[in-house]
Design a binder for these strands. Structure first.
Lengths: 168, 168
DNA sequence: CGGTACATGTAAAAGGTTACATGATTTC
DNA sequence: GAAATCATGTAACCTTTTACATGTACCG
C-alpha cells in the first residue's frame, strides 16, 4: 500500500460524511469546501472512483438519470479510511509559491519587493475572507479553524514584512 | 510559457544567490534550506538543468572532476526570474495532509482524534525547531520569518484544538 | 427550442517520486 | 584497500493538469 493516496482518503471521507454520492456530487463538494484542504477536478475523481470500485472500497449503489452513478463506501473502504487516520503521519506541504517568492525577495529591488509582498498579502486576505464567508458545517469545523489560523498568520507576516520594507 | 515551472525559478534563484554551481551543489542546497519552501531531488534537478540549458537560461561554465558541471545563470535566465517575481501571482498550497486530517477529525472517536492532533502538533513542533536551528542567512530572511510564523500558528491551532477536545 | 446545469469520461502532457545504475575521488 | 562522499544520470511509475469529447435533462 502506497504512502500517498490522499485523493482516495478525501473521497472516502466525503462519502462517509455526506453519504452515498455521485462523482459529480463529489467534484462539487471538492469545489465548495474540501478544496481548501485537498483539490481535485472531475478528470481525476472519475477514474479514481473506478479504481476504488475495483479495489472494493466503494460500491455503485444505484444508477440514476443521465448515467449518474451513486457510490457508497464499503466496510473495507471504512477500514482503509480509519487506518489512514490512525496511522498516517502527515507531512507538511513541501512546496509553496508564496514561500518561494519570500525566499527570493532579496533578488528584486525595493519597490518590487513591496509589490510582491502586497500580492501575497492580497492572497492571504482573500483566503481569510472566503473562509469567513463559509457557513459553519459546510467545512469541517477543525479544518476551518486551522485554515483561519494559517491565513491570519500569513497576513500578519505580510503586514510585518511590509512595515519592515517600508521603514528601513 | 507555462504557469508552474517553479522548479526552474527555484534553480535560477539559487544560481543568482549563491553563484555558479553544479547540479549536485544545488541538490544539497535544496536539502539544506530551500527545502522548506520548495522540494526537489537530484533526479528532478539534473534533467531540468539540461532543459534549462537547451532553453538558454543557464550555461555550463566549467567541467570539473568526476564529470562535475558548473552551471551559471544567463541574462535570459535572469530576465525569466525577474519576470516571474514581478508578474506571477502565487497560489496558496492547495493540498495539505494535515488539513485533510483536521477536516476528517469527526470521523474517528474521541481518543483517536486526540492522537491525530498530537501527531500534527509534533510535526509543527519539529518544523519550528528545525527553523529555529537554521543559522540566519542560511535561509532567505523573509521566508524564514514566514516559516516561523506559520509553524507557530499551526502549533497554536493544535494546542487550542487539544484543549477543546479534552475539555468537552 | 435554446441555454444552462447535469453527468461522465479519455488522452496527452507535465510534474514528482522511487528504484536502479554507474563510476570517480577522498579519507581512514 | 574499504568506506564514504562526490557526481551524474535513466526508467518506471504515480499524480495532477489541460484539452478534448459526448450526451441528457431541465428551465424559460
Amino acid at each position: 500500500m502506497l504512502a500517498a493516496m490522499s485523493l482516495r482518503i478525501a473521497l472516502l471521507g466525503l462519502l462517509t460524511t455526506v453519504g452515498p454520492a455521485s462523482g459529480y456530487d463529489l467534484a462539487k463538494t471538492f469545489d465548495g469546501s474540501l478544496n481548501y484542504v485537498w483539490q481535485a477536478g472531475h478528470t481525476q475523481i472519475y477514474p479514481e472512483l473506478v479504481k476504488m470500485h475495483a479495489d472494493g472500497l466503494v460500491t455503485v449503489e444505484a444508477e440514476g438519470a443521465r448515467g449518474r452513478k451513486i457510490y457508497a463506501i464499503t466496510p473495507e473502504g471504512e477500514r482503509e479510511l480509519r487506518t489512514w487516520m490512525e496511522e498516517h503521519d502527515p507531512v507538511l506541504p513541501g512546496r509553496s509559491e508564496i514561500a518561494l517568492q519570500a525566499f527570493l525577495l532579496h533578488l528584486v529591488d525595493h519597490d518590487q519587493a513591496i509589490a510582491v509582498v502586497e500580492r501575497i498579502r492580497a492572497r492571504y486576505r482573500a483566503q481569510l475572507e472566503r473562509l469567513k464567508a463559509l457557513r459553519p458545517g459546510e467545512f469541517g469545523r477543525h479544518a476551518h479553524a486551522l485554515g483561519l489560523t494559517l491565513a491570519r498568520a500569513g497576513l500578519q507576516w505580510a503586514d510585518t514584512t511590509l512595515a519592515d520594507l517600508r521603514g528601513d
